[in-house]
Amino acid sequence: MNLSQIWAIVKKDVVSELRTKEMVVSMFLFVMLAMVIFNYAFGAEKNDLTPYAGGLLWTAFLFMSMLGLNRSFVHEKDEGCLDGLLLSPVDRSTILLGKMLGNLIFLIIVQVLAVPVFAVFFIEVNFLGRLGQFILSILLSDIGISAVGTLLATISINSKMRDMLLPIIFLPVSIPLVIAAVISTSGALAGAGSPDELQQISSAMKFLVAYDIIFLLVAYALYDFVVGE
């Protein structure tokens, strides 16, 4: 594994995206649309939605991430560039990490833009004191989504029904991650009211760390097999 090669793949994806903005813009628009729909669904005279904010946030982020993951390999496949990557004498794990970091960066960019808007719509408490916990729970969840999503997007891109296949295989695998992400993010937004809640949030964070490690290792071990034929 070579860091400069990983960085070359990340930089290539970021420069391409900065020129087209098609992935980040479509992901951001999706999140905004989801928030508008949530806002209308809960009505104008809604009560404080802060306890449910984690669930709303991750519903939007989960589907938004699938948009990005699907797009991240479309260019590689449609322009034949995946063959260019596979022809080069780099470890398959280098390709995995490069694409994964690119996906992670795009997720974070959209989240940085979307979270302030989300806070205005749905959060009625001051959670700035727990901002570190909030960012950590988002980052840990993003790493898991990027690891498992990059692996599964690579599998689905070789299929004729790739647009349908990714959600079918990604959603079941990501559900445990999303449940832990909702618990930890809700805890960061609303704060822990009791020792039991604090325990639950702590367990969710530990689960996120374990999920990230397991799926990074799984993706690393399997990528050689899935990226070939």
Binding site: A8, V15, S16, E79, G80, C81, D83
Partner: peptide
């Protein structure tokens, strides 16, 4: 298929592949 990235310049494409091949 040229195996080139359409949203990169000619030089950026060659730099990218050059780094992959060290």
């Amino acid at each position: 298929s040229p195996l080139l990235y359409s949203d990169l310049t000619a030089e950026e494409n060659l730099k990218f592949y050059g780094k992959l091949y060290s």
